[in-house]
Amino acid sequence: MSAAREDAPLRCEGLARSFGGLQAVAGVSLALPAGQVTALVGPNGAGKTTLFNLITGNLRADAGAAWVRGRPITGLKPWQVARLGVARSFQDLRLFTHMTVRDNVLAATERSAWFWQPGGAAGRKRRQAAAEAALEATGLAALAGARAIDLAYAERKFLSLARILAAEADIWLLDEPASGLDPASRTRFAELLRAATGRGVAICLIEHNLDVVAELSDRIAFLDQGRVIAEGDPRSILRDPALAAIYFGDRHEPATAAAETTA
């Protein structure tokens, strides 16, 4: 294993998960370097979201292991993984729809039940400041008192990201975060991600819009049938005709025939 892979804030080795006779994730090894965006690309059903669920503890792995800054996280509950600085978004957003925008963001800063919050008044003030900064960064400050259910779709997307920002996590797992965004919102989203990587945040995103992938990612891991079959720089991966055939469902050869690409 390379030193760079060993030093990555989050890495997994041989993660696997089956559902009955279907092997959704089949021995995936992946490292997320600090200060980079790694995109997971592949056809529908390739195992991308299942991999996120294995890392975050939403699903239990049949085999393999994952580490956050060298600490084993396999078998931990989702809230335990989150406390180690891993934040994620979901395709269905999972917001508290009848709570205000501000309260949705504040909820992401709560590490335990409210009456056990550490830090007293100073800690509470720090959490409130983090929430307000996240709302400002995502353009939601003027909507802080609105209910999440009353937001437009793009605004809900940014609320999901504001929760991650306020949690001050240094590992982000984003599941289709740019889907449904208009061009201006996509530009703001890209700026937020670049600002985060500039602070050393390790980001992994699942995204079907290949223009977004090309614009934002530093590296791509291409998944097919539960396996990483290629990994490398965006230019090499996105221009590989064998991988394009797999992605668009025009297979003329088995997925395992796709050559691994390195940066």
Rank of each mutant, 00 (worst) to 15 (best):
S18M: 10
A141E: 10
G145N: 11
I220K: 04
W116D: 15
F189L: 10
N209H: 13
N44I: 06
A26F: 00
H98K: 13
L193I: 12
D224T: 00
R102S: 12
C12A: 15
F158L: 09
D224V: 10
A258I: 02
R239L: 12
A34F: 04
T49M: 04
E207P: 03
E176S: 09
D224Q: 08
A133R: 09
L22K: 07
L32C: 08
A146C: 10
L181G: 04
G180M: 05
I229M: 06
E6T: 11
G21Y: 02
R227Q: 13
R188P: 00
D103C: 10
A39T: 00
G119P: 11
A63I: 08
D250V: 13
L181N: 06
A242S: 13
G226A: 09
S217A: 15
A87G: 13
E231P: 08
A196F: 04
I237L: 15
L54V: 02
I203P: 01
L165R: 02
D211S: 14
A263C: 10
L76Y: 06
T138A: 08
G145Y: 03
A63H: 10
R83M: 11
A214P: 01
R199N: 06
L165D: 04
G139S: 01
P72Q: 10
Y247D: 03
A137C: 09
R17S: 04
G180Q: 05
R239H: 14
C12S: 11
A178C: 05
C12L: 15
H208T: 04
Q23P: 00
T197Q: 12
A166H: 04
T49R: 00
A242Y: 03
C204W: 00
S185F: 07
G119N: 12
F248T: 01
E6R: 14
G145C: 09
Q128R: 09
S217Q: 12
G198D: 10
Q225S: 15
R88E: 08
R251W: 12
I149W: 05
V201D: 02
L205W: 02
E136R: 10
A257W: 07
P9D: 03
L32V: 07
L10R: 07
R186G: 15
R227P: 01
F158W: 06
D233A: 15
Q128M: 11
A214T: 03
L140Y: 00
A255D: 02
R17M: 09
L243N: 03
A263H: 13
A108W: 00
F115P: 10
T256W: 11
L210G: 01
D7K: 14
N44G: 12
T49Y: 00
